[in-house]
Nucleic acid binder design. Structure first.
Lengths: 119, 119
DNA sequence: TCAACGTTTCATGAGTAGTTGAAATATGAG
DNA sequence: CTCATATTTCAACTACTCATGAAACGTTGA
């Protein structure tokens, strides 16, 4: 990921509602959620929600598709991964302290990443 | 890391100059760099630099100490790690696609993290 | 104490992002 | 076609962030 993209993604995530939206969408994977349902969970007006969804889409973090009269949004998880990769590698240069602190706990349990990286 | 902290950190990083500063400081670890030297590398006026350094410090991403008439700034690498951990775990729920894409390449080479996490 | 250096603070103005409510658009049902 | 639903767009306003240059602050050395 390039710096410009990373900056756009960071700016998009640096807002409470938008971060909530991403957190909500990631677990739903490709299926995503319709805008209305997202609005019900993050508690904001339709126009505000649309604004934030548009901001996230422009930053490449989510993608929209139409399903009948609803619009389904889903997280672009590779983009999120790229952003995190940028922070780890380009920004922090794979620094050991940074890596050791990220305390990853994926499907195989906390510490997997830490153990794998720096032996 | 809590959401509020993560939001503050993301907002701080979502600026070209400030991202550059962090990138510059991380490799210097605890030793850090004096403000003037940072200013020389990121090419901005002294007052602007001071503003950005202050923003990063308030977000907890860097820390300042005085050394004579100079002020030395260093990256708080654990904070960066915590932010990345927040993005991976709290925000993305340890999602496999996200993790696989982060393409970590720490000291032991690209792919360590990927291999370690999801078998 | 004085002058020089390194850095921060302040006041100001410009630009950008965020919120709101109303109106507009797009789709599906009757 | 008309109506209801789902979502987006628009205009207006507020609030915040950013940049600039001048002034102030703290430290060192003469």
């Amino acid at each position: 990921m390039r710096e410009a993209q990373a900056l756009a993604a960071l700016a998009a995530l640096a807002h409470e509602t938008r971060l909530q939206i991403v957190r909500l969408l990631v677990p739903h994977g490709r299926d995503g959620l319709p805008a209305g349902e997202i609005g019900g969970k993050v508690d904001c007006s339709a126009s505000r929600l649309s604004f934030h969804l548009s901001a996230l889409e422009q930053a490449g973090l989510i993608v929209a598709r139409r399903d009948g009269r609803r619009v389904i949004y889903s997280a672009r998880r590779r983009k999120m991964g790229s952003l995190i990769g940028y922070l780890l590698n380009d920004c922090c240069n794979g620094d050991e302290t940074v890596c050791n602190t990220c305390g990853f706990d994926g499907p195989n349990g906390r510490g997997d990443c830490r153990a794998g990286i720096h032996g």
